[in-house]
């Protein structure tokens, strides 16, 4: 092995993995180890595999992924904070033959955009919602989110979230699963290769569902925010397994696609 050259390794027949062309060459602006980057890649791989780049319109939120359109090589719109599902509603209704998805953080989707999320889900808009739940406002420097766990520290709950004073975390995914307009609701993560595979399957299913024309497919990705949580990526993944998953259990919550 020792005398294999770089050129040899890079020969087409030796390639085992290639970045999808649907990701641009721009370096991701996310902190190293952040789940946003992995999820971007998975979504783009799914669109490439389904060969629907020319039919897809994505919507970037306000949050760390506000610049998703710098990395995703598809037509995209940037929404006001929380309003992505309203944009998606109009786009899909005006162009029903397109594939439309929103990509939103927990502050965007479950705080300021609660009304838009619930009503788009309740109307059964034929869209995909990708929901990155990192339990915190990453973009603005680690403030408490609607999803912040009880007792969890953030810059606006510096002594831990006191649920008497600050209210309880909101399980938006369980909530939208109750609504007749959602057909597929699932919670996944991207912190291990096997979880990445599962999430990719879920996202593929969500986009395939748009062909059924039956309602919202909602994919939550429980994710880390090592900057906001003030941990290393490895610590944050461990903390996520030990604290986030018991509160936000992974797996399908609703599959109503027949």
């Amino acid at each position: 092995m020792a005398n294999i050259t770089k050129e040899e390794i890079r020969k087409p027949e030796n390639l085992v993995y290639k970045k999808t062309d649907l990701l641009t060459d721009k370096a991701l602006s996310y902190c190293p180890g952040c789940g946003h980057g992995t999820t971007h890649r998975i979504v783009m791989e799914v669109l490439e595999e389904m060969d629907i780049q020319d039919k897809t319109i994505g919507i970037a939120p306000v949050g760390c992924s506000v610049l998703a359109y710098d990395f995703m090589n598809i037509d995209m719109q940037q929404a006001a904070h929380g309003r992505a599902p309203a944009l998606a509603t109009a786009i899909k209704r005006l162009m029903p033959e397109k594939f439309v998805f929103t990509y939103q953080g927990d502050g965007d989707l479950a705080a300021i955009g609660t009304a838009e999320t619930i009503h788009a889900c309740n109307r059964g808009e034929n869209i995909v919602i990708i929901f990155i739940n990192n339990g915190i406002y990453g973009m603005t420097g680690g403030q408490m989110a609607p999803t912040t766990l009880p007792g969890m520290k953030s810059s606006t709950s510096p002594y831990g979230r006191d649920t008497h004073l600050m209210g309880n975390p909101l399980k938006m995914t369980e909530l939208v699963a109750q609504l007749p307009g959602t057909i597929y609701v699932t919670r996944q993560s991207v912190h291990t290769p096997s979880n990445v595979r599962k999430t990719k399957k879920a996202i593929r299913k969500a986009f395939e569902n748009q062909k059924l024309n039956k309602g919202v497919s909602f994919v939550e990705v429980v994710s880390n925010c090592n900057s906001g949580w003030k941990m290393t990526p490895v610590q944050s993944n461990k903390w996520m397994e030990e604290n986030m998953f018991p509160f936000y259990p992974l797996g399908d919550i609703k599959v109503n696609t027949d």
Binding site: Q77, A80, R83, A86, A88, A90, I91, E116
Partner: peptide
């Protein structure tokens, strides 16, 4: 709020 953002979309 939703209506004007639908208009945006």
């Amino acid at each position: 709020v939703a209506a004007i953002n639908m208009v945006y979309g």
